[in-house]
Write a protein that binds this DNA or RNA. Sequence first.
DNA 1: CAGGCTATACACCGATCGGTGTCCTTCGCG
DNA 2: CGCGAAGGACACCGATCGGTGTATAGCCTG
Lengths: 190, 190
Amino acid sequence: MTSKEKASPRDRLLDAAARLTYRDGVSIGIEALCREAGVSKRSMYQLFDSKDEMLAASLERRMPAYQARLSHPDPAAATPRESILYVFEQVEKGSVEPEYHGCPYLAVLVEVKNPGHPASVVAREAKDFLLSAFREAAERGGARDPGLLARQLLLVFDGASARAGAGVEHLDDGLATATATALLDAAGVH
Amino acid sequence: MTSKEKASPRDRLLDAAARLTYRDGVSIGIEALCREAGVSKRSMYQLFDSKDEMLAASLERRMPAYQARLSHPDPAAATPRESILYVFEQVEKGSVEPEYHGCPYLAVLVEVKNPGHPASVVAREAKDFLLSAFREAAERGGARDPGLLARQLLLVFDGASARAGAGVEHLDDGLATATATALLDAAGVH
DNA sequence: CAGGCTATACACCGATCGGTGTCCTTCGCG
DNA sequence: CGCGAAGGACACCGATCGGTGTATAGCCTG
């Protein structure tokens, strides 16, 4: 029961699904997923009802890490402005890595056209979380229109992650934080 | 030779490809494309070397209309600020339509992971055009850093089109123009 | 030890994928 | 009229798609 134990088939599947769909898109085949996870196709269909459900479960599993990554390590000490800018700093930091392909939840929302797809539902949850976090910080920061500012910041966040992920933009010079800063100033967040 | 003539198989294919790939994604099958266009699969492979090449040709064909749609109707009379804001007004206007799914070029860049894909190359051209247009207007408008402002505006543009296309945001209240305006003001564009 | 659960291996299903080979009709043009 | 190019109809290719049926091996627990 130590850390030496091998991960369960379920976890291996979820991890493999997260990695491969992020790299190759949601159209990756389940055969390749199972091969990567070292799990038989039969086992996978006993753990999940369909490929779509497994994809959704994989996205859901990554959500806590996703949220933690974008949340300021010391929420009590951070000012609202610092909390917001921290999100964009994290995007810029991540975009430098060679395996970066943008926000996985946005990618799913763009790739999967059907809004009722289980994965789309989870992806929207991830986006709603960010919107709420921005909005709450905007309120605390005294923004003139917290709801508007939060939506503006999400525009920049998704635009930055989509463009950096597609390789048509590089954020390493602080483009995202600079843009967010301009919006914060315009909204009167001190 | 009047307008009553039927469009050529090539044009019908290109139009069908643009419509279906925009609606269903690039993973749409060529069988469905040909059926929609009313063109035999054999004819298509005599006009194009592969599905990828046809997809690229389809995107290229739509570029003039795409650029015209985002360009101010009277470039001589429009101020730089007006030219820039016109782009975002057009996005907001388009996003209201039920068949809107965001900027097709950004969608292709997100869906197609391979940057060497013919369609990706064309999509990057479309994005480069917008960047240049923004930058040129920013210069004329006396922006402090025209290159930076242009990239910021593109972040907002792609973020807005991606989010509106995915159905997680509605731009009908002027969110995009409001955000662009804040950036224009911050950059000192009068 | 026996029973039951978990997971594997592997063949198989119909459907679709991108792409091709073959034959036949239609039509413009000399 | 006759010829050649364009295009359509349709079968076919191997590969892969998501998903299932079946039989077997390991393992924990009663």
